[in-house]
């Protein structure tokens, strides 16, 4: 008796979201299977990966990253161009870190100015990220949304306590909303409902269900994303059918295993890159559709793995 391939039947599909302008667009999502199971439906053909750029020199990035970007830290435009041209990022994720009240408290106008300069210089789509401060992010992203009018950026992260201002600005200037929820499928769904009730179209939302680093809660992010995908694809719950983007670099490079010299752990440089890449692959295998990363070598390794995952023999 020949072996009957046990296939899952799916009832839903992940929205396809296309960010960027003119010929320089990138699509997220659009799949109808659990991660990389091309034998039973439309699975990922590729995974868009953004490299992270700050509007100010980061003080807490490790040596492995300072070596690469130290020369361009002072100039976000050069930094973004380095990521686009030299390291072939699919997108740039501009984190407006210095707007945080504890990290410089720079003004929304300053941030908007940087956004404008970066957009004029780069071709790939831009993700505009606040500094993860509820009140300040709302102010900053509002100003940046206006400055980026017409560029179809992904902006966020909108959270339960500040989504109104951010979503309104995104709608007014034609952007996509990046919605952040805290490791809980119900909270993720609720935020999407709130956003759609405000008038944001379902296909203009991208979710971040909270990424965690390898060794520091990865399993929680992993299982939440698996559950989100089950609800989206099996139960056809339209309120969780948004593509997921994972903020990998910021988490992975916080882990001491990625940066501390410790003889028993082996080569620090290679280990750091692998820590970020392994975190990324973990999140991809549980449902992520796009990534924000820091190290270009980690990006390259993840791309190789994705290429290998998407290559299925006849």
């Amino acid at each position: 008796m020949p072996f009957a391939i046990p296939k899952e039947t799916y009832n839903g599909k992940i929205n396809s979201v296309t960010v960027g302008k003119d010929a320089n667009t990138v699509s997220l999502g659009g799949i109808s299977t659990y991660p990389f199971l091309g034998f039973e439906g439309q699975s990922q053909a590729s995974i868009p990966i953004a490299l992270e750029v700050w509007n100010s020199a980061p003080l807490d990035w490790p040596l492995a990253l300072n070596e690469l970007y130290g020369d361009v830290y002072a100039d976000p435009v050069k930094w973004a161009l380095t990521c686009q041209d030299k390291y072939k990022a699919d997108m740039i994720a501009l984190r407006l870190a210095s707007t945080h009240p504890d990290q410089g408290d720079t003004s929304p106008e300053d941030a908007a100015q940087v956004v404008k300069q970066v957009l004029e210089a780069i071709e790939v789509p831009l993700i505009i990220l606040g500094a993860n401060h509820i009140e300040k992010d709302a102010e900053v992203l509002k100003a940046c949304a206006e400055a980026a009018s017409g560029y179809n950026c992904l902006i966020g992260k909108a959270q339960e306590k500040n989504y109104k201002t951010i979503a309104a600005a995104a709608m007014a200037y034609g952007h996509y909303v990046l919605a952040l929820s805290n490791l809980d499928i119900n909270l993720a769904k609720q935020l999407n409902i709130l956003l759609t009730q405000m008038g944001v179209k379902e296909e203009r939302i991208v979710m971040d269900t909270m990424s965690s680093s390898l060794g520091y809660g990865l399993e929680y992010s992993y299982s939440v994303m698996e559950r989100v995908r089950m609800a989206a694809l099996k139960q056809n719950d339209t309120m969780v059918q948004m593509p997921i983007i994972s903020d990998v670099g910021i988490e992975a490079w916080k882990a001491k295993e990625s940066k501390v010299d410790e003889a028993a752990w082996g080569d620090t440089h290679a280990r750091g890159i692998l820590w970020e890449a392994t975190t990324a692959v973990g999140l991809l295998m549980s449902g992520s559709d796009a990534l924000i990363m820091r190290h270009p070598e980690a990006l390259k390794q993840v791309r190789k793995t994705v290429a290998d995952l998407t290559s299925v023999e006849g």
């Binding site: 390898l214 992993y222 820590w275 392994t278």
Partner: peptide, 20 residues
């Protein structure tokens, strides 16, 4: 199986096999 390879791998194994 160099240590810089094994540490991330073992950590992933621990994460995934932790009883939720």
């Amino acid at each position: 199986a160099e240590n810089w390879q094994l540490l991330p791998l073992f950590t992933l194994k621990q994460n995934i096999y932790t009883d939720p």
